[in-house]
């Protein structure tokens, strides 16, 4: 009998593992919903990279430099 390829065995290992889950299915559902909320809603709409509005690193460093200098008290 021909020996199964390693990749096939790995795929089968995961396939059987996921198929036999009970609580795990609920947990995966929660994980997927959580990741969706985090990346598709929170990250996009509420937590954009603040410095992402600048196109180049040079613009970012200029902005941060200006902020750090401007905020110094009685400078």
């Amino acid at each position: 009998m021909q020996k199964e390829l390693l990749i096939t065995r790995i795929v089968r290992f995961y396939w059987d593992g996921f198929r036999n889950m009970t609580i795990g299915k609920t947990l995966w559902l929660i994980i997927l919903i959580k990741l969706f909320v985090m990346f598709a809603i929170l990250k996009v709409f509420f937590f954009p990279d603040y410095l992402g509005k600048f196109d180049t690193p040079s613009d970012k460093q200029e902005y941060v430099s200006d902020e750090l200098i401007r905020r110094a008290v009685n400078h």
């Binding site: 609580i23 959580k34 929170l42 954009p48 990279d49 603040y50 410095l51 970012k60 460093q61 902020e67």
Partner: peptide, 27 residues
């Protein structure tokens, strides 16, 4: 496993906050 699944990736939110709320710090 239950604890791991619910907790997984919650730390990533801290990294979101670094980029959004604490951008001067992040840079």
């Amino acid at each position: 496993g239950i604890n791991f699944a619910i907790g997984v990736a919650t730390g990533l939110i801290l990294e979101f906050e670094f980029g959004a709320n604490w951008s001067n710090y992040s840079w």
